[in-house]
Design a protein around this nucleic acid. Sequence first.
DNA 1: CGGTATCCGACCTGATACTG
DNA 2: CAGTATCAGGTCGGATACCG
Lengths: 125, 125
Amino acid sequence: MKLTTPEPIHVECKRFSGVLSLIGDKWTVMIVMTLTERPRRFNDIKRTIGGISQQMLARTLRALERDGMVTRAVHPTVPPQVEYTLTALGRSLAAPIRELGSWAGAHIAEIESNRSAFDEVKDRR
Amino acid sequence: MKLTTPEPIHVECKRFSGVLSLIGDKWTVMIVMTLTERPRRFNDIKRTIGGISQQMLARTLRALERDGMVTRAVHPTVPPQVEYTLTALGRSLAAPIRELGSWAGAHIAEIESNRSAFDEVKDRR
DNA sequence: CGGTATCCGACCTGATACTG
DNA sequence: CAGTATCAGGTCGGATACCG
């Protein structure tokens, strides 16, 4: 069994596609990072993030639950309380996401500058 | 100046959104990773990746060029050759992406197992 | 409070055809 | 070879209304 993968770069990339579609949507990452602090209830998440519709929050949370990234605990009180907690798997995702986040922080200004420059040249034609 | 960011977690997360939509689409990451090996020409990229339409490749490359992630060099030969090269910015993105990729490799099996289990329970109802 | 159901518009993506 | 233009389908995401 080979330890160094001579695997072509594009084959390795295919593996990313699934994960990227996993976290590539608009809300997943924000929800995961929000739950990194502590478990939260539905509307708590909603308020914390802000701008997310009830439906998209419910949908995204269900997807995360399906993937085993969060657990859903229903407390049969009145009114009902549902608490979402990050699993070990979910917490482990936070690290690479933060890497990406720090990359973003370091380069977002440069990217936006590039965009402006590019668009300006385009407009001039 | 504070070194430890007391920044609320959700504020920090907003910054990610832009970057994630940057790399969150279906092809960007695969193109970047393909160009990590070496500069390539249009159809070279197309063949290497496989399954991408001509339009999506052109579109995604244009977006990457706009962001300053790749440079586009036209050699005025017949037939024309256009070579795409990763910039320093583009290369710097490869690192966090690989982090995400290794996370994917380490956990994809678990995730798929979780999904199967979740779906099976759902079907039984 | 914590959802689900329904509808709708916007965008993403691909197929195809055409151009320099 | 390296695109652009056009069209069509599917998915994403939001608004609204309703339910337990």
